[in-house]
């Protein structure tokens, strides 16, 4: 398994998987997908990278400690409830904004989306942290 071929293509595969996980994350509101699934895909990408190139490489690539990412995710998800406080609706009620893109089209920004991104960070962060720690535990 730990062959030259594997080690060569693993980084590229990892990049693809992370990209795919972002795609799954963002389409989740209307199609199968979402933060949990996307996060799991990204976490498996990290596991793949870790097996091929070693724990240190993953840590370098992530830059932040994975558990920090998980913490950030919880914070982000909780913070997506703040606009509902300003709008005086129950905590974590979905709020939607239409941001004009200039060419007559609009970008739909919403608090559920921010929340979902938070979920993604938590899943990626926590699971990657667990796996990296186990891999270097010896």
């Amino acid at each position: 398994m730990n062959t030259v071929i594997f080690r060569t293509i693993a980084p590229a595969l990892t990049a693809l998987m992370v990209l795919f996980s972002l795609f799954v994350l963002l389409r989740g509101h209307n199609e199968p997908g979402g933060g949990f699934i996307g996060g799991l895909i990204a976490a498996s990408a990290m596991a793949l990278y870790g097996i091929s190139s070693g724990v240190q490489a993953v840590r370098r690539a992530l830059y932040f400690h994975p558990i920090t990412m998980a913490g950030f995710g919880v914070l982000l998800a909780a913070a997506s409830g703040i606009p509902s406080y300003i709008n005086q609706v129950p905590f974590l009620s979905g709020i939607w904004w239409k941001l004009p893109l200039g060419n007559g089209q609009y970008f739909d920004l919403s608090t559920p989306m921010i929340f979902d991104i938070g979920v993604w960070f938590v899943v990626v962060g926590a699971i990657t942290a667990i796996m990296l720690t186990l891999e270097e535990a010896d």
Partner: peptide, 17 residues
Amino acid sequence: ILTAIVIGFAIFSFILV
């Protein structure tokens, strides 16, 4: 179930460790 799967996995990792 969706959240249960993910939490179940987290707990599973925990007791494994």
